[in-house]
């Protein structure tokens, strides 16, 4: 039976937190470069150029791309044949976040209680979603989530009769209301179906899907294309100051749902859409 030491998990998670906040993935960079060359608004072009320059500075000096280094969301797939030695998996994952945020000089943005609001000073707890899978792998995906964009996300329980048109309308309205505050151009994760929390979870997971990858279902891929075009026709543009690049990508995930329901969740990420994945 394969065994992983908690120390290895702590060190890996710490490294991943620093990496995610300092370097952006190639799919995100590529789409921002494309946006910069296609932008029609002078302000928008200038802003996109600044964003691209900023990535270079962050990389060169190994400092965070953005000061809001987020609350950490983790997706963990745990192989059922795997053993963890020397402590609990949950404790190790949380300790890894604390270590990464301390050693990487990342901002601690988590408060212990939503009403009392005292900073926990180590950016924990992270929000961790586990999945038990066959095999003996430990796969960890980390998304440090900034709240400028998280705050513009929304969820609605539509009626089945609202159908595809209702979903389109809700996504576009959410993007329209949120983009100027969410550091556009944004990435839009959409979850349709399941239950309330399943829709929200799919929307979050959708943000981590590479921008070039379409949903394998034709009608869902068509919805993604439609939403991308419709959102970019809103004119909101980079940082909301006008332009043709409001949205870099729309990723939609779907799941079976109840005969009486059509849940839809929209999770918005800014252009600093950070995600890092590793397998142990």
């Amino acid at each position: 039976m394969k065994t992983i030491q908690t120390k290895k998990i702590i060190d890996t998670v710490a490294e991943m937190c620093i990496e995610a906040n300092t370097f952006l993935s190639e799919d995100m960079l590529e789409s921002l470069r494309t946006a910069e060359s296609s932008e029609e608004s002078e302000n928008g072009k200038e802003i996109l150029k600044t964003m691209l320059d900023n990535f270079e500075v962050a990389k060169r000096r190994t400092i965070p791309i953005c000061q809001d280094t987020g609350m950490v969301v983790m997706f963990v797939s745990f192989g059922q044949d795997l053993m963890i030695a020397d402590g609990s998996l949950e404790d190790a994952l949380q300790a890894g976040v604390a270590k990464g945020y301390e050693e990487g000089y990342l901002r601690k943005s988590v408060v212990a209680d939503p009403f009392i609001r005292t900073n926990t000073n180590n950016n924990t707890p992270a929000v961790i979603h586990y999945k038990v899978v066959p095999g003996d792998q430990l796969k960890i995906k980390i998304l440090p989530k900034g709240f400028g964009s998280e705050n513009t996300s929304a969820l609605k329980m539509l009626k089945p009769s609202d159908g595809m048109a209702g979903v389109r309308d809700f996504v576009i309205k959410t993007v329209e209301a949120g983009s100027p505050n969410a550091c556009a151009p944004i990435v839009v994760g959409v979850g349709v179906g399941g239950t309330m929390e399943k829709a929200a979870l799919m929307a979050k997971e959708a943000l981590g899907r590479p921008l070039w990858m379409r949903n394998p279902l034709d009608h869902v891929a068509a919805l993604e294309d439609y939403l991308l075009e419709a959102c970019n026709n809103l004119g909101i543009g980079p940082m909301g100051l006008g332009g043709v690049n409001t949205v870099l990508g729309v990723n939609v995930e779907v799941f079976p749902t109840h005969i009486a329901g059509l849940p839809v969740a929209v999770n918005i990420s800014c252009y600093v859409n950070r995600h890092v994945e590793r397998e142990l």
């Binding site: 600044t50 000096r61 791309i65 000061q67």
Partner: peptide, 13 residues
Amino acid sequence: FGCVGGAGALLQS
């Protein structure tokens, strides 16, 4: 005034 969100590394300088 508005400045570019997310451009924290650049603005720091």
